[in-house]
């Protein structure tokens, strides 16, 4: 094992590993994880561990990266429950502006925005309480049960209730859209009394 090129090949391993460590975007990090897997399979093969190299290529690169893409895709998302007709209504332009701004704020933290349509305000509220969505966007203030003031709702047609505290804090400090007002909906108490421990297994953000 005195050949010089072995050292060069082994030096690739910490290089790609540090690339992986300093990558902040989770999807880019997964691609670099694949690169690290390919390079480390090469290093293991050069050092004579053929079985380890094969395992790294098959399990470490192929299987775990595919599973992690699915996991990251389904966990790094903010699910926003909306009215079914609010996207096709008269305030379409206003809603689109708000959607773009929200998407920009979430995009800085590598989150996706997913709109989940519901038929009426009752189903929307129920979805928030059962933790099907992280936040709801209510188009009609008169249906809103969390409204802090009725006078404010006149010039703010969208009332957003968020049940995730951290997400609420982020949006509170960064969302400047004039058409919306934010509230924090504490569902932990409601869930205990309404549904027991049925939803404890649901994923938090």
């Amino acid at each position: 094992m005195t050949e010089n090129y072995v050292y060069v090949i082994i030096a690739l391993l910490p290089l790609t590993a540090s690339m992986l460590v300093f990558q902040t975007n989770p999807y880019h990090a997964l691609v670099i994880r694949g690169i690290l897997g390919a390079v480390s399979a090469l290093v293991y093969a050069v050092l004579g561990a053929a079985d380890v190299a094969l395992t790294e290529a098959l399990v470490g690169t192929l299987l775990s990266v595919a599973l992690y893409v699915v996991a990251v895709r389904s966990s790094l998302v903010m699910r926003l429950g909306v009215h079914q007709d609010s996207t096709a209504g008269a305030e379409d332009v206003c809603f689109k502006e708000f959607k773009d701004e929200l998407r920009a704020i979430l995009g800085k933290r590598h989150l996706r925005l997913e709109l989940v349509p519901y038929p009426d305000a009752q189903a929307l509220h129920q979805a928030l309480m059962t933790k099907e969505v992280h936040a709801t966007c209510m188009g009609r203030p008169k249906h809103d049960k969390h409204s802090s003031g009725v006078g404010v709702a006149e010039k703010q047609p969208y009332q957003i209730a968020i049940r995730v505290k951290h997400l609420h804090d982020i949006l509170q400090s960064e969302l400047f859209s004039p058409a919306t007002s934010l509230t924090y909906a504490d569902v932990s108490e409601a869930i205990k009394t309404d549904l027991g421990t049925q939803d404890l297994g649901r994923a938090h953000l």
Binding site: A41, A45, A50, A53, L54, L58, T61, L62, L63
Partner: peptide, 15 residues
């Protein structure tokens, strides 16, 4: 090592 290289070549692309 050659067998490992060929297997990585043919399977890694599928992933």
């Amino acid at each position: 090592i050659g067998v490992v290289g060929v297997i990585i070549l043919s399977v890694g692309n599928a992933g």
